[in-house]
Design a binder for these strands. Structure first.
Lengths: 125, 125
DNA sequence: GCTTTAAACTTGCAAAATGCAAGTTAGACT
DNA sequence: AGTCTAACTTGCATTTTGCAAGTTTAAAGC
């Protein structure tokens, strides 16, 4: 998937944001990059929610083509070459913080086990 | 769908927010209720993005069970009985505004036709 | 009060997205 | 040179979405 094949449902900016971010996984990848800083493919795979490898690859490719995420070393091979947020991706930080705070206040009656802060990832292997 | 059968992927608040709102349609319904105020089922159907009737019914039922949306007249029949945001739903306003502003700045190079403000809905029939 | 109308859904099925397991590739390390 | 393993890709089952059609029911008109 890349930005050429994006389908924009309308001219509404909120809808356009959701055309990019409105699925089960994309914002969780952004969350990991906000919380942990630059992160490799395997580290992103290790998040507790358990994203599938094909979905992770697809979403990283979309986020890259929209210049929201980039490789730390653009000219080096993929192995151990972490992804990080660009300025545009980093600009989502207040939005995600707002979502987290909203959930803590407004979903606490439905999800008893919710944490105060994002939890750290499990060790891999 | 109702809140009993919600699957929470993790204890992370951001993830929990996305468990509820992280799909193609839910936040667009919230957007319509923020922009227009109380709105009937048919009015919500008329939004320019074209949500399907079964998806709209399903999402309204989920939002209702999470007490984010309610009927204007709780004890009256459904016909012409609009939905509106509860206090919890209304609390998403700054998040959606943030998303819209983010998109205007960060997606403008990829979506030339994006508007400055959400557009008004088409007339029905 | 009986019929008609239309808003508010529900249902059934096709199409697309997601989830899962397994396989492939290529650079780094010895 | 050979092995290892991170970073993917592929194939297929399952789930979610999209679309068209059908159903229900309060209310408006006669």
């Amino acid at each position: 998937m890349d930005s050429e094949e994006m389908k924009w449902r309308s001219a509404c900016p909120i809808c356009s944001a959701l055309d990019v971010l409105g699925d089960r996984w994309t914002m969780l990848i952004v969350r990991d990059l906000i919380v942990h800083g630059p992160r490799t493919y395997s580290e992103l795979l290790d998040s507790p929610e358990g994203i599938a490898t094909n979905i992770l690859a697809d979403r990283l490719s979309l986020l890259s083509s929209l210049m929201l995420v980039e490789r730390v070393n653009p000219d080096s091979p993929a192995r151990n070459n972490a992804f990080r947020l660009t300025k545009g991706g980093e600009a989502l930080r207040p939005v995600l913080e707002g979502l987290g705070k909203w959930a803590q206040v407004n979903l606490k009656n439905f999800h008893q086990d919710m944490l105060r802060m994002p939890d750290s990832p499990k060790k891999r292997k």
